[in-house]
Design a protein around this nucleic acid. Structure first.
Lengths: 205, 205, 205, 205
DNA sequence: TATGAATGAGCATTCATTCAT
DNA sequence: TATGAATGAATGCTCATTCAT
């Protein structure tokens, strides 16, 4: 009983702290942000942070975790979709990763990528919990499509790496401030899907 | 006379320092690296670094500049190539950006991307001196191809953003340790070219 | 309740630090003194100093402030004195500024004057909080005396500047090591008063 | 021969350096000024300074020396004056010390006083080479006046300390920015003289 | 559990001075 | 004698983390 309430409270406090941390990280960046900044933003004392998180880095990892879960829950729905409409599926599915950059996440994403490049723990987290599961799931699906001759069966593994890299690259380039991407961000899922399926080359008739 | 020699000497010393800095940055990361680390690695005194560079960040910017110049000189040759062979051109051209990750640059690239996400000066440098010129050059070429009906004329601007994002994304995902990318890195220029031109969809006959 | 205790504690700690700082400043001078010196002298860690003062200069300002308050409280009593006895009043009143150089303040006064010459914040503090109020108070009194024909009414403003400059100059010259001043320091209030009122010229009878 | 020319050259170079140093000290203060600042201002290399002066402090001492000589040469003329006109002599003589604050010396004086408070070498220089000789000279003269009943013979030593302290104090208070002193600076020699000789007290008739 | 004072290691940067040329 | 590159000691200040209350 009491434990359950306790649990609830701990989760709430953790979220309170993470919300504050995400806000401040987004505003000032990871390294320039001090624990005190976060504590103040959360309305807590410095030391309290350490009752819930081991250190500053753990905060970033936890933020990443929350973000990941949100996106995955989002995508889970799409994955139940009808599987014969390749084009339709992709157009829907590709929306999810790109949606990360909506809201306030823009600045936060920068911080996370920045640290990911440099922090192996975060990198592994991304690789093992985001990229690999996604690739694995998609590989199955692409394989099915290939078996059904809905797509060409050439090197599906590499195709998926290209696709995932593309999504990551788009987000990175977007946060770098590319105005063209910014302007046409919403059209990208459709655009990429068509590009991926049809290419831009003109076949000799 | 004397000035020319001086100039030579200054350039040499700068390079000596940048080599050391690149080595240490690659090994320890940007923030964890101290000026003392770099000075030691260069066989110089701390203060000497500041006779050649304004501050720690200036070192990273200069390293980036050197890298950029190397790649651009590399690519310049390709750009003179025959322009009617779309597929051939792309297969050759796409090798250049990917070649950054050869040698020791692997770790260094991580550091630079990490800082680029967070340092607006570096970001602007990349955007204005690397991305924009490249996109602009390519846009002209793609437009010519479109006029010649060698490729489809649909939204060339966005197509190029997708292509450049893809290259960036591949590099980022590679340095994250993806073994599939690592293994097939050399085949990527061809693979991407074919993918871009032909797509993977199976056209109904 | 708790707040009041806290307040008390903070004041005590601040004084502990200021005492240490005053001691070390007096011994080594302002610039040669390091924060570490002060921390050691106070039995605290370096960082703790910064929990109570913004920077090294703030320490000096606070020391000055304490000194100022001590002297002003001292002088306040005298100012209530009977106002018709010009000679008596001056003889008493002039004791206060000179008393600064008693105790350990000797070396400290040097440090403060030194910085005051060079630090506009400290200079303004002295000018606005010490000199101006004093001059203003005295001007009223001198004016009353002049109205009562107790003193000659010629250029009271300048007379007071001369008097205040004299007090300052005496202290400066004293800390420079003049043995005559040192020996007759205690007689100065009387001596100056008589000099100011009577002059040293021999009137032709 | 050659030696004489050499000597000339050395003196010229030293003055060139001291001029530059005085200018920069006055502008930035003693501690904030770097040897490089001075070298640049003198149009020389850093190292060259050290061929003519031992260190930064030596520059300030030399500047002080030059200043002292200028004032003393100035005053020497007055000291030859007729000695029976007490009032006239003082009015003329007191002009000299106050004249130090004319020209650019204003800021430089601050720097020198500041260092004098803190540097015993400079302090001794002032005391032994400026104050003591002056006091000694004046003591003789005052004694003569006292013998001639031109002034009252009471404690001439202390009277002179008061007078010299007053001059010093006036200069210090002036550089602190007192506007009244600034405005009436030129009238001070006369004012002080009359004050010293006559006092401000009203004798009962 | 919350607090926030205390800690002290850590670091970029400056600058007086030296010395080989 | 002039140069100015090299030196490296020196220091104010920050901030993640601890821990007594």
């Amino acid at each position: 009983m009491k434990d359950a309430l306790q649990q609830q409270f701990v989760v709430a406090r953790r979220n309170q702290i993470l919300d504050a941390a995400a806000r401040v990280f987004a505003e000032k960046g990871f390294h320039p942000t001090t624990i005190r900044d976060i504590a103040r933003a959360a309305g807590l004392a410095d030391g309290t942070i350490y009752n819930y998180f081991d250190n500053k880095t753990a905060l970033l990892l936890a933020i990443f975790e929350r973000m990941k879960e949100a996106v995955q829950q989002d995508a889970a729905v799409t994955l139940l979709t009808d599987t014969t409409d390749v084009r339709g599926f992709l157009k829907t599915y590709l929306r999810h990763p790109l949606s990360i950059l909506k809201q306030d996440n823009f600045a936060l994403f920068r911080i996370i990528v920045s640290e990911m490049m440099v922090n192996s723990e975060l990198r592994t987290l991304y690789y093992q919990q985001v990229l690999e599961p996604t690739l694995s799931l998609m590989e199955t699906r692409f394989q099915q499509w290939a078996d059904q001759r809905l797509i060409q069966p050439t090197n599906i593994g590499l195709t998926l790496r290209v696709l995932s890299s593309l999504m990551l690259g788009l987000m990175v380039q977007h946060v770098m401030g590319d105005p063209t991407l910014e302007a046409q961000w919403e059209t990208l899922p459709d655009f990429i899907t068509d590009l991926l399926l049809d290419g831009v080359g003109n076949e000799p008739s």
